[in-house]
Amino acid sequence: MSVDITGAEILFRLPLGIVITETQVNMWIVMLVIAMLCKYLTSNLKIKPEGKRQVIAEYIVNLANKFIKDNMGPGFKNFPPFIAALFSISLFSSLLGLLGMYPPTADLNTTLGWAVVVFILILYYKFKTNGFGGYFKGLMEPLPILAPFNLIGEFSTPISMAIRLFGNISTGVVISALVYAALAWLSGVVFQWLPGTLANIPYLQLGLPAILSLYFDIFSSVLQSFVFCMLTILYISQASTKE
C-alpha cells in the first residue's frame, strides 16, 4: 500500500517553463461555470422582476454592495465585484474537492497569487492615504530599530493569508486521500474471502468519506473563503483609514 500525496498534475508544458496543470484547468472550469451562471442569472432583466433568476441576481448584488458598505464605508465602488469574484472563485474551487477533482485552492501558487493581489491593494491604499513618506515613517515606529520587524509583519500578511487558505483546503485533500487509502486497505483485508475481482472493490469507501468531506470540503471551504474575503476587507479598510 502506498499513498502518494503530490501537487497538481502537469497537463501541458509550454515554452519558457510555463506549465499548465490541473490547477489552471480546474480554475478555468470554475470561471466558466461562474460566468455562465452570471449570464444565466442576468439573461432576462426587467424593471419589474419576473421569476426567480432576477431575484437571486439582485439578492447577490445587494448582499455584496451592502457587505462592502457596512464593512468599508462608502467610496469603494469596485470592491463589491472584486470581493464577489474572490469569494466565488475560492468557494467554487474549494468545492471542486466534493466532485473528486483537484481543488485549485489546494495549490499554494493559487492562494499565494490571490494573497499577492490583496497585498498590492493594501499597499496601494496605504500609500494613497498616508503617502510614501508617511508609510515609511509608519514602519519606523515605535523605534527605528524595529523597522525590520515591522517589514516582516507587513509581508507576513499575504503569506499568512495564502497559507491559511492553502493549509485548510490541502489538509482536507491530504486527509481524505489518507482515509481513502486506509479504507481501501481495510476493505481489502475484510473482503479477502470474496471470489475474483469482487475482492478488489473497496466497499468501505462508500459511506465514511462523505462525513469527512462534509467538514473538510463544505464547512471548511465556505468558512475559509469567507475568512479570506473578510480579512481582505478588514485589511484594506484599515489601510484606507488615516491613522
Binding site: 489552471q24 472563485i89 495549490d107 497569487g113
Partner: peptide
C-alpha cells in the same frame, strides 16, 4: 502558476 492565478 502564481501569475496565472492572479490573472484568473
Amino acid at each position: 502558476q502564481t501569475l496565472m492565478a492572479i490573472g484568473n
